[in-house]
Amino acid sequence: MTSNLLEVRDLHTRYGRVEALSGVSLEVPAGHIVSVIGANGAGKTTLMNSVMGILPSTGELIYEGQPLRGIPLETRVARGISLVPERRDLFASMSVADNLTLGAYSRRQQKWRGDLDHVYERFSRLLERRKQLAGTLSGGEQQMLAIGRALMGKPRLLLLDEPSLGLAPLIVRDILRIVKQLQAEGVTVLLVEQNARASLAISDSGYVLETGEVKLSGPARELAQNPELTASYLGG
């Protein structure tokens, strides 16, 4: 039996008086890739931001058996949770190398130099462009840099918010392949996607979010065949 790296129980998040998440529960077993899919406004990004601690929420968040309540975002990073946000939030006017170096900020020791080489091995494009400013990279390269920066923090739980956003299909394929590799290296991944078929293809399990609630859930393979999922995307 695998234990859960992250457990979300009855999570509620509000923007002012409007509730964006109303009672979401989900489990992310250690070593798995779990997908959360849903339309715009379903609450996917809100879910990621609540887990990360960017947004205040009520309900339980249990990571490695410990509650995350009251723990600020920066401490969650130090405890091994990394988020690659939808907007990537790179340091646009700093070099690729600086962006990656800063990824290791929460690890006080100097041992990150080896990890830097490792990221360059994984994304050779970043090595070529290490002196370039992050803001001048193409969309796909920026996404690689955002993932690379998150990996520099040696996360045990990686949160990926729509990594395919605005990218060409070939690049999306590359990025999802890398996510799969990371799983093989022992990183647990919570992946938010609109690109339902592709993300379920690499996932172990999945959840479909609609207007702040979990509508469907189950093993990824079953979910991908579920006619309701196709219906909610193409109205057919």
């Binding site: 395919s164 299909p169 999306v172 394929r173 999802l176 392949r177 799969k180 590799q181 093989a184 996607e193 609109q194 690109n195 339902a196 078929r197 592709a198 993300s199 293809a201 690499i202 196709t230 995307y233 193409l234």
Partner: peptide, 12 residues
């Protein structure tokens, strides 16, 4: 809308 199909390629 549904995105690229990973399985044709054999993911991972």
């Amino acid at each position: 809308y549904l995105g690229v199909d990973m399985e044709e390629e054999g993911a991972a």
